[in-house]
């Protein structure tokens, strides 16, 4: 009989990660799926959240800033705040311009934060990162599995809350304006400054969710390092959204679970098959495989597993035709 506890423990471990990813992908979906904003620096915004929450809640770190030892919920709120502020600054610089510029600017954010994480030892702990990040309820729950399950419940609750909130948001007049901006550049231009404000709001809210995801990750694992937030993370999150179906919140969540399962399984398979001395090299193949999956989805099923629910109204298409006619 296989080790049931081990299996369960592994299962909850997997689910917690998938849930955290799903939360981040929801944020990405608000930006891309509903507003058409292309964020290539997701890993950067996740990192901001993770580091912020760690610095707020961890016990005093010797030789560096932070380690305020404050309650964990404050850390999570702080994570959302700093990610949101960073998004605001980048958004102001890039959101009025062509969408490519946002992509490039956010990519720059991720690259620069990676440098800061590696080098600003006084703030981020450098290449070794931050440790001793407190785990919530750890003092009450000894058992590892029980703690994993509890954390899963917390993460799932936050995911559910975000899902409900986002569903209400995107169905509100605010959400309809977002989609109109995404669908139709001319409509967006006629909104002028207001379109920029709508984009900025969506971008900031999306990044706040990413920050929260980063914080959840930090407090689950207990330590963070720069290598946790490499471009590959951004890529995985994007693949989750595209596979699940952008513009659909349930698709975003589904994509997170499916792609994370594929990633985990392919990683395990490679570890089983490939002799240990070749594993570093084989790990690159895993990325190639996921990359090919993304491209195949883009080519063959661009709407993902669950496509967008709302179809563009006939009326809007007619208007588009009229604009083209003039």
């Amino acid at each position: 009989m296989p080790d049931l506890i081990g299996l369960l423990s592994y299962g909850t471990f997997f689910l917690v990660f998938a849930t955290i990813f799903a939360l981040v992908v929801l944020g990405l979906n608000l930006q891309w799926g509903f507003t058409g904003l292309f964020n290539v620096g997701v890993a950067g915004f996740v990192a901001i959240g993770a580091y912020t929450s760690a610095l707020i809640t961890a016990p005093d770190y010797p030789d560096q800033l932070g380690g305020l030892g404050l309650p964990i919920p404050l850390g999570w709120l702080g994570a959302m705040a700093t990610s949101g502020i960073a998004a605001f600054i980048i958004g102001v610089a890039a959101l009025r311009l062509r969408h490519d510029y946002l992509a490039i600017a956010t990519f720059g954010v991720a690259v620069t934060l990676q440098l800061v994480a590696l080098n600003a030892k006084g703030l981020t702990g450098g290449p070794f990162g931050l440790q001793f990040i407190p785990k919530p309820f750890a003092e009450v729950i000894d058992d590892n599995l029980a703690w994993n399950v509890t954390y899963l419940a917390v993460a799932a609750a936050l995911l559910g809350l975000s899902y409900v909130a986002l569903e209400r948001l995107v169905r509100s007049p605010w959400g309809r304006v977002l989609r109109a901006i995404r669908e139709d550049e001319t409509a967006a231009e006629s909104l002028g400054k207001r379109a920029f404000r709508f984009r900025l709001q969506a971008f900031v809210i999306g990044c706040m969710l990413m920050g929260l995801g980063g914080a959840l990750y930090a407090h689950f694992v207990g330590y963070i390092a720069p290598e946790d937030f490499l471009p590959i993370l951004t890529f995985q999150l994007w693949t989750m959204l595209i596979v699940g179906g952008s513009g659909n919140n349930r698709g975003a969540i589904l994509g997170a679970f499916v792609v994370w399962a594929l990633w985990t399984l392919s990683g395990n398979a490679l570890r089983e098959i490939v002799p240990s001395e070749y594993q570093a090299r084989a790990a690159t193949l895993q990325v190639v495989l996921i990359g090919l999956l993304l491209m195949l989805i883009l080519l063959l099923r661009p709407r993902g597993l669950l496509g967008e629910e709302t179809v563009v109204s006939r009326h809007m298409r007619d208007e588009a035709a009229d604009t083209a006619e003039e």
Binding site: R281, T284, V287, V288, G291, L294
Partner: peptide, 25 residues
């Protein structure tokens, strides 16, 4: 043929990872 510019950026981001990891492999 049927995508828009932004799908191209996304695809190029994926292509970059594939090309880089293939090279490293």
């Amino acid at each position: 043929r049927h995508g828009n510019a932004i799908t191209l950026i996304m695809a190029s981001f994926g292509a970059a990872l594939v090309l880089r990891n293939l090279l490293q492999f």
